[in-house]
């Protein structure tokens, strides 16, 4: 049950925040590209769903 430490140490632990930044930037870019290339009419239709 005890949480043992499996590794003595980790080299370059600063890679972790970097991985997270790269992952985020990639996803952000893909979403941004999609969003701004999306069809205007479709966007308007979807935005209007609550008001139907």
């Amino acid at each position: 049950m005890k949480f043992t430490n499996y590794l003595k140490q980790i080299q370059n632990v600063s890679i972790y925040p970097l991985i997270s930044l790269i992952l985020f930037t990639t996803i952000f870019t893909i979403v941004a590209i999609y969003v701004f290339s999306a069809d205007k009419k479709k966007m308007d239709d979807q935005a209007g769903i609550p008001l139907q």
Binding site: F28, V31, M43, D44, L51
Partner: peptide, 16 residues
């Protein structure tokens, strides 16, 4: 949007 009786300002923004 319901209370203002108009759709959300930018649906694109909402996705991001």
């Amino acid at each position: 949007p319901k209370a203002a009786e108009r759709p959300v300002y930018s649906y694109r923004w909402s996705i991001i």
